[in-house]
Design a protein around this nucleic acid. Structure first.
Lengths: 249, 249
DNA sequence: CCAAAAGTGTTCATTCTACACCCATGG
DNA sequence: CCATGGGTGTAGAATGAACACTTTTGG
């Protein structure tokens, strides 16, 4: 409805008699909008999250999710990409919206509602060492997370849940793994995200039956054991399964 | 980050030198926030959606989703419940957030970002005839929907997708069916929502194996065929499966 | 030859699917 | 006794879990 008769009558009840557009601006256009990003990374068999250490009040010195206010003439998803770009230098990250958080008292500076996003990064693709990242930004192990500022604990928890549901029902990994990877690596990724253990043989059968991977006919080199066959994702099949979905686990 | 060093430096780049909190209010607190609800109903084997006919500009005369602006001191979910209450008279509807829509130009009156919700109603529980509902509110068949105002087409489509995923992975129906119902009714509901056909015997086995229903030892009356056994949901099991999830279809 | 991880095959149990069949009621 | 929808049983296929086994590399 937004501003039809119904809203109008509401407004009249509250004794405004000036034209509708002005009313809206005075009374309703007082919200701040921000974006908070839960950036998942994967490195050395561990699921990681990108956190920042706050350098200013409120919550100075506390850990928090990277985020920023959205500019009045900026689309939300553009703001999300901007934040990630500034933070990591990477331009086209996979990102998806999670939920909106709009409790009246969630932000001490006023009525700021925030949109959660989650993103996935293959850390090894982009220099995992601190120097390449913005100041005060750190990768934290997912199972050793500190308390976070604001309602960021909740935002993070919701994002993990959504990531896990997502992993079970559509292909993911493209964004977290190197272009060429071994099946064991894919298995380790699933195990890290879902916090489960799978049988090697059965895992392989499940994945292969999705017909999602391309056998690159290449082998690992220099490993002190039988080298693994390398695969990459079939982009067409990947997109198809993203739409149609599948079931894993 | 929201307003730490990072944001601060951004602000300084744009030549603000007043204290941070003031800057925020002047420059950033200009957003309007609204809620738009996709209310699904189920009646006579058909999935329905509640739509309103807009009585004022913009988009006067066009169909739209019910929605309203959020008050500056009102929580978003409270606003959503308020809208549904005013519209339907029902107080505690099942509602869940879908996504946020924040394109700069999505609303002609200014920068209004909107939060999508979907809700489920058993129409027969609440007088499906027009009179009981607010003026200009109508149930429309899901497969005969008109074009909608704003970006409401997209909001509605996203909501259906989310509803469908939801139905496949947790129990739903409690909210759409009468307290006592026959298995065939539950099957028809699933078929309406997912737009599929299921084998009667197999559908029953799937549902019964979830151990979700209570056999009321009651029968339909006055039907011109063998009367069906009536069931209701086991609330405990229902809540459990909502958390743990299951897989259907 | 050994350790370590890659990769495969088989068995058994469980679940899914299709379809045929019987049952209770009103007219 | 018939039409209508309720309700059940079963055979065969497909899938999944567990686990043992073979293969290939470096040291």
């Amino acid at each position: 409805m937004e501003e039809d008769d119904y809203t109008k009558s509401k407004l009249q009840q509250t004794n405004f008699s000036v034209p509708y557009y002005e009313i809206s601006y005075e009374k309703f256009f007082q919200f701040g909008l921000s974006v908070d990003c839960v950036v998942f990374g994967y490195h050395e068999k561990k699921l990681k999250v990108l956190l920042i250490k706050r350098g200013a009040a409120p919550f100075k010195g506390k850990w928090a999710l990277p985020g920023d206010l959205v500019y009045p003439n900026e689309n939300i998803d553009v703001a999300a990409k901007r934040i990630l770009k500034d933070l990591t230098g990477i331009n086209n990250l996979f990102m998806e919206q999670t939920l909106v958080y709009g409790q009246v008292d969630r932000h001490p500076a006023g009525r700021v509602i925030t949109t959660g996003y989650y993103a996935l990064i293959d850390i090894s693709k982009h220099d995992p060492s601190a120097s390449a990242w913005a100041d005060g930004v750190y990768w934290m192990d997912f199972d050793e997370l500190p308390d976070l500022a604001f309602d960021h604990d909740k935002i993070l928890n919701d994002a993990v849940e959504i990531l896990r549901t997502s992993v079970r029902h559509k292909p993911i990994g493209f964004e977290l793994l190197p272009v060429k990877f071994a099946l064991a690596q894919l298995q380790e990724l699933y195990e890290a995200i879902l916090d489960e253990k799978y049988d090697k043989a059965n895992f392989r059968k499940r994945i292969v039956s999705q017909d999602l991977l391309i056998d690159l006919k290449e082998m690992q080199k220099g490993v002190p054991h039988r080298p693994a066959r390398l695969y990459s994702f079939d982009p067409e099949k990947y997109e198809l399964l993203k739409k149609k979905g599948f079931s894993f686990g």
